[in-house]
């Protein structure tokens, strides 16, 4: 976990100097970007072979995405997706998915 936190901090520093993205951090932007995630991740919170990504603490969400981007976590699909996400995009996604709560009736 330490390396994750460290790379999270590095990303923030990096973001200040180098990131430019299409839109500002917002829930609306997060919702838009999230449509790429829902091709593989269920929004219901139901457990499957692909982890649920709703209702996470935003800092952990960004740390994990950053670890994929830095190729510190394995998964070719996730590395491929994360590599083109900037800090604003990760933050928007993290904030948006944090607002999605598991469905009461999920199995």
């Amino acid at each position: 976990m330490i390396y994750m936190v460290r790379s999270f901090a590095l990303t923030l520093v990096f973001a200040l100097y180098s990131q430019s993205s299409i839109a500002e951090v917002s829930l609306e932007y997060g919702e838009y970007l999230a449509s790429e995630c829902t091709s593989c991740h269920l929004l219901s919170g139901k457990e499957s072979n692909i982890p649920s990504i709703i209702d996470w603490d935003p800092e952990s969400f960004i740390a994990v995405l950053t670890a994929y981007k830095d190729k510190e976590l394995e998964s070719k699909v996730m590395q491929n997706i994360a590599t083109r996400l900037g800090a604003d995009e990760m933050t928007s996604l993290a904030q948006y998915f944090a607002t999605i709560k598991p469905k009461e009736d999920s199995e």
Binding site: S39, H41, S48, N49, I50, Q79, N80
Partner: peptide, 27 residues
Amino acid sequence: SKFISKGDEDADTRKATYEESVGWYDA
């Protein structure tokens, strides 16, 4: 960017790839 499975992957990796596809189908 792009990727492809490697030829020398072990059985566990191949199984994990299949299991990932099942999760993908549901989602």
